[in-house]
Design a protein around this nucleic acid. Sequence first.
DNA 1: GTAGCTGCAAATCATTTGCATAACC
DNA 2: GGTTATGCAAATGATTTGCAGCTAC
Lengths: 153, 153
Amino acid sequence: MSHVRNVEQFRSSLRRFLHTKGLKSTRQREVVAESFLAATDHVSADELYRDISTQHPGIGYATVYRTLKLLKEAGLAAERHFGEGFARFEPLEPGQHHDHLICTGCGAIVEFENPDIESLQDRVAERHGFAIDYHRLELYGRCAKCRPKQTHS
Amino acid sequence: MSHVRNVEQFRSSLRRFLHTKGLKSTRQREVVAESFLAATDHVSADELYRDISTQHPGIGYATVYRTLKLLKEAGLAAERHFGEGFARFEPLEPGQHHDHLICTGCGAIVEFENPDIESLQDRVAERHGFAIDYHRLELYGRCAKCRPKQTHS
DNA sequence: GTAGCTGCAAATCATTTGCATAACC
DNA sequence: GGTTATGCAAATGATTTGCAGCTAC
C-alpha cells in the first residue's frame, strides 16, 4: 500500500521541513530516512537501527530515534502501538490515512481504508462536541491462514 | 458508563477465576480489585497504587501490577494506551465494549458505542479473511471546551 | 505442610538526554 | 564561525522479576 512511493519527493519534503525549522540536513538523517522508506512498513526503532547498522555502523540508536521524531513532526511518519511494548513506525503519504487489521496468530498487519467508518466517526464526535484531529482503529483477530479450522462435529 | 457495576459480582468473578486457576484469594488482591473498581475509570497503575497507599501503605507497586495482570486474564479489566507512555486500565463489564474519544487539550476521555461502526468493521474484516476477536477505536481531538473559538474574520 | 503470595530492591526494556566533539550553512 | 547534530554512555520511567519471608488452603 505505502510501498509505491516517490522516494525523491519524500526526501525533498524532509529537506524542506528541516530548512523551514532552521535545522540541518545531515548525512545521517538522509540515511535514516532512506532506510526507513526502504524497510518493510511498520518497522520498530530497533529493527530500523539494525538495518542501518549493516551499512552504516557509525549511526547510533539515539540518531535513529531523533530522526524518527523529526519525521513524525514533518508529518512523514506515523507512530503506531500494537501492544508489543514498543512502537512501530510507517511512512505517511501526505493526506493519506489508513487503519489496521492485526493477526494475533502470525502478527501479519493488513492496512485498509473505509470512508463509511470515517464518516460515522465524525458523526459520533460531533454528537459529543468534539473536533477530531486524527484517529486510530485497529482490528485484532485471526487471518485466513491462522484461523482455527471449522469444527464440523 | 461503567460506574454502575455490581461490586459483589466483580469480586466473585475474581474469586472464581483464581480458584479455577489454582491461585489464592488474598487480602491484597481484594484490596486492589476493590480500589480498582472504586477509582475513576482509566486509572494508571501509578494512580491506583497511590490511591491504595493512603489506606493500605503496606501494598507494593509490584502487587498492584501483578493484580492488574490477573484482572486482565480474568477478563475483568482492559488495558488501554492513550499515547502517554504508560497504560491505563478500566473495569470490564462482561460482554460490554466501548470505544473512546480523547481530548488532546484537557485529556478528557469520553466513552461511546456505535453498532453501525462495529458492523462495518466486521464487513471489512470478512473481506480480508479475518475473524475479529476485539478491536480498538480511539478518536483524538478537541472537546467542546478546548476547541479554539471559531475565527470569524 | 507447602505451593503460591508479598514486598522490597534490583533488573529490564524502550526511549531520552547530557556532553564533548564533529558537521552543516 | 557559530549553531545545530552526532555518538556514546548514562539517565529515565514504566513495568517485571528474584528472592526471603509470609499466608491461604
